[in-house]
Design a binder for these strands. Sequence first.
DNA 1: ATGTCAAATAATATCGATATTTTATGACGC
DNA 2: GCGTCATAAAATATCGATATTATTTGACAT
Lengths: 223, 223
Amino acid sequence: MSVMKPSEGKETSATHSAYLSLRQMILTGELPPGQKLKIEQLRSTLDTGASPVREALSLLTSDLLVERLDQRGFRAAPASLVNFNEILSLRCVMEDMALRQSIARTTADWEERLVLTHHRMKRAVEEGSIPKFEDAHKSFHMALLDNANSPILLRYCSQLYDLNIRYRYLAAGQTNYRKRDIAAEHEEILDATLRGDADEASATLIRHYRSTGEYLTDPLSKL
Amino acid sequence: MSVMKPSEGKETSATHSAYLSLRQMILTGELPPGQKLKIEQLRSTLDTGASPVREALSLLTSDLLVERLDQRGFRAAPASLVNFNEILSLRCVMEDMALRQSIARTTADWEERLVLTHHRMKRAVEEGSIPKFEDAHKSFHMALLDNANSPILLRYCSQLYDLNIRYRYLAAGQTNYRKRDIAAEHEEILDATLRGDADEASATLIRHYRSTGEYLTDPLSKL
DNA sequence: ATGTCAAATAATATCGATATTTTATGACGC
DNA sequence: GCGTCATAAAATATCGATATTATTTGACAT
């Protein structure tokens, strides 16, 4: 059974695609904070077996997006203002560190990657595709950090980035969609980085995060 | 089946105990770095089913102790000198941060917890029980950090602590077991912390880690 | 009415078996 | 001999079913 057209030779393990789907549903708030995650229900929603769902949930536990309760199954991680503030603080410290290390190790190859990911992000804005922009945005920010050559640090930054994104979605309903000029901020970060000005690049990056944070604090306090 | 004596009402999900066993085996090097982790083999070693083993391995993936390969199963995370150095660096930065935050929020209750965990650690040394000491040692170090009230940071520190312990075991075979006076170092850290001297406490803590690190670098370079 | 306990219900955790994929084996042609 | 391809063997990933454990329901006594 499961005759597969030769075209779709994609790498699709049931577990991995369940992981991606669930992750997306939690990040966007489709599965809201604290929600009980019943295996049987998810199994039918995702049209897959119980084992892949369980394994995906286990993996999401490590991303701090899912909590496992004693022997009472899983639930989407709760959200709170203090949790948000912790994420924001850690992000600032860790991205600052990663960015400085990256700049200290600048190579032509890295600079090109930055320009490229930045370009793709701008392009995604023009095209007006939100999900495309989200991906490109993360790619750009991670590219800024990945030259630090510190896989664990990068992993933590990536996790914290995702956790932060989730709060943006949670607050999005009520937020007056930010009027700041995000594009200009990205431009500044890129320029300072290419200039090798670590202080300026880091300060701008952190300001970028903190001001986004302030926009979210108010709506989130109503959680 | 599986008639359980009423006495052993312990919380023992097969997954959780598999998780603990595998984790221990990897930390101590019984499952060496890079080793292929075959489900069937582990299943019989741990005398449990395949599902708990798989789930435990998934969880260990998040602890960076296990890697998942495409669809080729799992293996114990590889070890290398650069990985060790990354862990050491991150630990110094993050524990420094956590310790300073903890000290900044000092309470009588926390001070008592420090004294208590420190005492238990000394006691474990006297008793000569290695595993007991290991547990107590970690408890003491985590207690130093947990007053920062930053669960995510604490989690990261705990992860990095474990990863570091693993390297200590890996190097242990060939290392001339350290002649430093560990106990005195702990004493210094505790005293400075109780005194509220964050600079001294942090400096001592980091020196503690770095000098342990130096002892390991040489044996590890032969990995 | 209200609280308690037991039976019924639902959900989780686990097992055993199967299908799929990867790796190892060996025959065949060059 | 050596590389290539088909086949066999092994291991993984997944499914379906069952046993366990938590939760709900409702009867009963207070």
